[in-house]
Design a protein around this nucleic acid. Structure first.
Lengths: 204, 204
DNA sequence: GTCTATACGCTGATAGAC
DNA sequence: GTCTATCAGCGTATAGAC
């Protein structure tokens, strides 16, 4: 007697399997490049069966994005205005770097979408993310006013953290081609620690 | 009596028009997402006529990549081992940032390809780019040994320059959604100057 | 050189049997 | 819930008239 809302265990498992397969495929090929067939095959389902769970390719994609967005932005929300500023920022950098190591597919999913103009994410960017960034900028500005970190441009500081950390996931093939392929991120954390300590250390 | 080699003026013009249209389309949609029809329409040609000049979608793409690769890597090749180290590196950063401002399509073309695993660029990365990076690492290592720049990880330094500068082109919609849309790169050069001066300044 | 017409596989999505 | 069969549309690419 399972309604659409109260899913059976099988349905829950299948939905989770589908989203994981979709993450594989979308993150590697982008929305346009991905095909429903690839997702179905990767999930071990037939194409019509997959479309029984999600009515369209776009529905799978948006379900995936909204499921991941909170996880993706959590480290930034965790920035504590009461904490020790430089350590707070370095902790944020480290968490983002860990996410590039542990969740490269998620990183590439967003990267693909944004590089192509974020047609299915534009509202999120200009509303939700904008709000979160504005809040963070206030925290950073306060820290600068109090002399706890050096004066710098808060938004470019955020952009730099995003680009530097996500680079290891988004451009992984390139990094791998140029580093030792076994541990392409070797030394990355030390480098970023060094970089941001030098930038943020309050100057004379 | 134009042979395949000695193209007429019309042919040369058409090839250039096609590659420019292809840059538009491929950089916005990636290889899989792009269609020959879009390129043809954007170039003002019929689809069969376009396929007269380039026999396949893949042929257009590889022609475009090989045409752009030299331009794209030129700033790194221009790094002068005899120059003043910090200024040489800052000049490189500034040139890369200018390229993100003036050639965002080219940046996104490569970004799309690499995020998706660089299936049509892997050899270039692991041979040509690898060679260029190895040469650059030698220069940087020497500067460090001579105490002209601070000790840091040369490859991560390069990755950081790439990711920080290309971010403004590759993630332009996101940057634009969070900065003033008129001049999204406002303050970027000062930020990067500051960042790298602090990192590279020889310490005590 | 450029066009119309077309071949033919694959796309996202649906109908209907089980 | 899951399947086979199938749809219309679009994808790349080609043939052949002009």
């Amino acid at each position: 007697m399972a309604s659409e809302q109260n899913s059976t265990r099988i349905q829950k498992r299948n939905r989770a399997t589908i989203l994981d397969a979709a993450l594989d495929v979308f993150s590697q090929s982008g929305f346009n490049g991905a095909t429903v067939n690839q997702i179905a095959t990767s999930a071990g389902l037939s194409k019509p069966n997959l479309l029984y769970y999600y009515p369209s390719k776009e529905a799978i994609f948006t379900a995936l994005l909204s499921e991941l967005l909170d996880v993706w932005l959590a480290p930034l929300r965790a920035l504590d205005p009461q904490g020790e500023p430089i350590e707070e920022i370095l902790t944020y950098v480290r968490r983002k770097l860990e996410m590039s190591r542990d969740m490269p597919r998620e990183s590439r999913l967003f990267a693909n979408e944004i590089v192509q103009g974020a047609p299915r994410l534009n509202d999120t960017l200009s509303i939700d993310l904008r709000k979160l960034v504005d809040d963070t900028v206030i925290i950073l500005d306060n820290w600068m006013k109090q002399g706890k970190i050096a004066q710098t441009h808060p938004k470019h500081l955020l952009f730099s953290i995003w680009s530097l950390t996500q680079h290891y996931a988004d451009f992984e093939v390139q990094v791998r081609a140029l580093m030792s392929p076994q541990d392409p991120m070797d030394g990355a954390q030390e480098f970023l620690d060094d970089l941001y300590r030098n930038l943020l250390r309050p100057k004379g």
